[in-house]
Amino acid sequence: MSSEYPIEIVNLRKEYGSFVAVNDLNLKIKKNSFTGLLGPNGAGKSTSLKILTHLITATSGEAFLNGIDVTKDPRAALTGVGTVIETPEFYPYLTPRETMRYVGEIIGMSKESIRSETEEILEKVKMVEWGDKRLGTFSKGMRQRIALGQALMDEPSIIILDEPTSGLDPRGMVEIREVLKNLRTDSNDLTIVMSSHVLTEVQDLCDRIAMINHGTLLMDDDISAFLTSHGTRSIIAKTAGLPVPELIQRIRDMDYVISADRLGNDIQIIIDDSKEDRQRLFQDISGMNAGVYSIADSDILEATYLDMIKESR
């Protein structure tokens, strides 16, 4: 296995009876990248990550962590790997410091390293003042910060995150994202893979995107390349009332418009990603006097994501 790809999934398959959750998936995660794993519910993201972290076994295929197949030698493969799968729970009668010590002792760290790293990590996740309180009294957001903290014990070279902000309130989400952002800037040798449903979160944190649907890989690329690969831009036009079909058709008929469709109470217009076309669209729609009161970029990642998922159906 190449050291350029610390995480490598080869022909991975997971079947539950007749249902195929992961369908001969192949995926390579680049060293020192922060890869967002995207896909709708049931796409196979969590299943793949759970196989990678040895929570479930694969029906067939291989999953390498730092060159070691987790399906064959999970203990060796998971050495140097930190994980936060969904929103894990902790033993409520332990404190964060005791939890870190427990994890550190399992990994085989020395007492001194455990002590110093625990303080460093609690600082990182902003939980120093809570270090000796029992976890049973913590909010979900606080527990998730501790979950992230324990994943950082022994300075892992790989971190696997499965929807780490799922179920958190907006403040909790922001706090976790802050920690993840700092991780990227603080460490030179860290590969992170994170599954998420929150596209803005992926856009904000990740430098690469891998998209999965029906257990197979749809694409895997740099986020910048992903956003421009389609070479299009999605524009949302808002009208005072419901958009009338005639208006949509008139927009569609413009020679530079790729598509125009009703999207709820709005119109989604896809054009080439050029300043000129955007300018022309703005002028043309304004000139129509058709009740359009707002023209703005839609979420590009979301639009592209939906396009790709639609295509893969």
Binding site: T53, H54, L55, P74, R75, A76, A77, L78, T79, V81, T83, I85, E86, T87, P88, E89, F90, Y91, T99, V103, I106, I107, A147, Q150, I160
Partner: peptide
């Protein structure tokens, strides 16, 4: 759900 912490360790 404590297995999510313990079982994912080496």
């Amino acid at each position: 759900r404590t297995a999510l912490i313990l079982f994912t360790r080496p």
